[in-house]
Simulated scan of single mutants.
Amino acid sequence: MTVTYNLRFDDGQHWRVLAVEVEAFRERCLLRTPAVRPFTARISLCLWFDLLVLQERYGVTPEEILEPILHLERGEPASGVKPATRFRRPPLKGLWHKHWFSARFLAANMLAAMARGDPKAWLLEIVQEGETLTEDAIARIAERFTTRALEDRDAAKQLTGEWIVFLKRDGANHYLCLATHETGDQRVFDKIINVCSRDFPQIGAWIEEAAA
């Protein structure tokens, strides 16, 4: 039987890729990031398919996601990205997620920094009300609302992107798929049960055990 991986986007676009094509893509990635090879058996082919789609549709390189996975394998040494977090509510209870960060998330992180910060206070750090704006002041305002806003979130370990969903079992991480904040928990769960079970046939029971 021919095995395929399918994904339909909200805009109606449908991606259908043969499993052998996903496997070939995986091998190309492993040539570029050989440190992943020792634990490849713990990475679902579903996740490799997600990587392939991200690369082809959005230009996100696989290394942008494989590096956070290596980070997890090394015990999450300090970085600006949020540490892995466990899902607390069904249907994903028992699973974990790790954010991965890409330049495509810069705008969202800057907006989040401003939403949680005090933009008026930031502005008054540089110029007072009624003061004439100089070129230097404009440059410093731009730097405060962009670079320093990101640095603030980095220092607070609040840089966010999208998720790597994984399961901790027998002292090792099993990497299942990628997801976004908008995907919906049930949709992520159904994807794991229906697709990741090809690589991990007992995934449903594993999730139940982890959630107990």
Rank of each mutant, 00 (worst) to 15 (best):
M1H: 09
T2Y: 13
T2G: 13
V3W: 12
L7C: 11
L7E: 06
Q13M: 10
R16V: 15
E23H: 11
F25Y: 15
R26P: 01
R28K: 06
R28C: 09
P34F: 06
P34L: 08
F39C: 07
R42E: 14
I43E: 02
L45W: 13
F49C: 03
V53P: 02
T61Q: 11
T61L: 09
E63Y: 01
L66F: 05
L66A: 07
P68S: 06
H71F: 11
H71T: 08
L72S: 06
E73P: 00
E73F: 01
R74F: 09
R74I: 03
G75W: 03
P77M: 04
A78Q: 15
A78D: 05
K82A: 10
K82E: 08
P83D: 04
R86C: 08
R88Q: 13
L92E: 01
G94F: 00
W96C: 04
H99F: 10
W100K: 06
S102A: 03
R104T: 11
F105G: 00
L106K: 06
A108E: 14
A108N: 06
A108G: 04
M114G: 11
A115T: 10
G117D: 08
A121C: 01
W122I: 00
L123V: 09
V127N: 02
Q128M: 10
E129N: 08
A137D: 07
R140Y: 10
R140H: 04
A142Q: 14
E143P: 01
R144Y: 02
F145P: 05
F145R: 06
T146M: 10
T147W: 11
A149V: 03
E151H: 15
D152W: 11
D154K: 09
A155F: 00
A156Y: 10
L159V: 08
V165M: 03
V165R: 03
F166G: 00
K168L: 11
R169W: 05
R169E: 08
D170K: 09
D170N: 12
N173I: 03
T180C: 00
E182H: 12
E182P: 04
E182L: 09
T183L: 14
T183Y: 11
G184N: 10
D185I: 05
D185G: 04
D190L: 15
K191Y: 05
N194S: 13
V195P: 02
D199I: 07
P201N: 02
P201Q: 02
Q202H: 14
G204A: 12
A205K: 15
A205V: 12
W206R: 02
E208P: 06
E209G: 13
A211S: 10
